[in-house]
Amino acid sequence: MIEWLGMPVGASAHAVEVDRLMALVHWLMLVMFVGWSTYFTYVLVRFRRGRNPRASYHGVRSRWSTWAEAGVLVSEVVLLVFFAIPFWSRQVDALPAEQGSTVVRVVAEQFAWNVHYPGPDGVFGRTSSDLVSADNPLGLDRRDPAGRDDLTLVNELNLPVGRPAIIWLSTKDVIHSFALPQMRVKQDAIPGVLQPVWFTPSETGQWEIVCAQLCGLAHFRMRGIYRIQTPDEFQAWLAEEAKYLPAY
């Protein structure tokens, strides 16, 4: 079923669960639609005027439709109680520990993704709206000791495979939605709200960051690149980027 649906490749740990539920729901939909359409077609042919000139006042008397309804109800309860709700509490609500995770800030703005790594010290430097400028879109204070080793990028996000990634998402202006289709991640960035979203990449590759919420004229090209790298590649990339940091 998953192949038929034509979803993008699933490359995170929880993608398997999302896709399994997606397949299950679509099986349920298919069974309902086919069963129901078969009956519908039968009725239209069997009870057409030419074949059945006189209608029956009482019509169908059996109670099988009640059982079919009950079946639908039970399937929905199963999907909800055993798949959808546990998934949410495990994957969306419960953040993993920051030790052992890659922690990144992503700040959306019309029409770019600003990416902020805390650097080797693991602490994000101070940011301030007073410092925001064309070459410092995050308003990062480089004089803050915690900020000296921070990496900032635009429309580019690198993450190591096999390690949970926590992204602290926010926006400077309007609502955006941070979507990584292959990670099965999508999270609205709401002004005034700092919202974490996390996932564990399970395959390496290079894909695109999508803005999923209408955010203005250039919404359609608010696109970034994200790479899932091996841990070695990721460390090498961090070291390479650190070379270009301004010296203080």
Binding site: W36, Y39, F40, V43, L44, F47, R48, R49, N52, P53, R54, A55, S56, H58, G59, V60, S65, A68, E69, V72, L73, E76, V77, L79, L80, A84, I85
Partner: peptide
């Protein structure tokens, strides 16, 4: 999610009732 699943039930009932209404009819197309 629960209310959303529950609301599908009366919708399914109405739709099914409309299909079942055809059973035994003398249908003019």
């Amino acid at each position: 999610q629960a209310t959303t699943m529950i609301i599908s039930i009366p919708s399914v009932i109405v739709l099914s009732a409309l299909v079942l209404s055809l059973h035994g009819g003398s249908i003019r197309f």
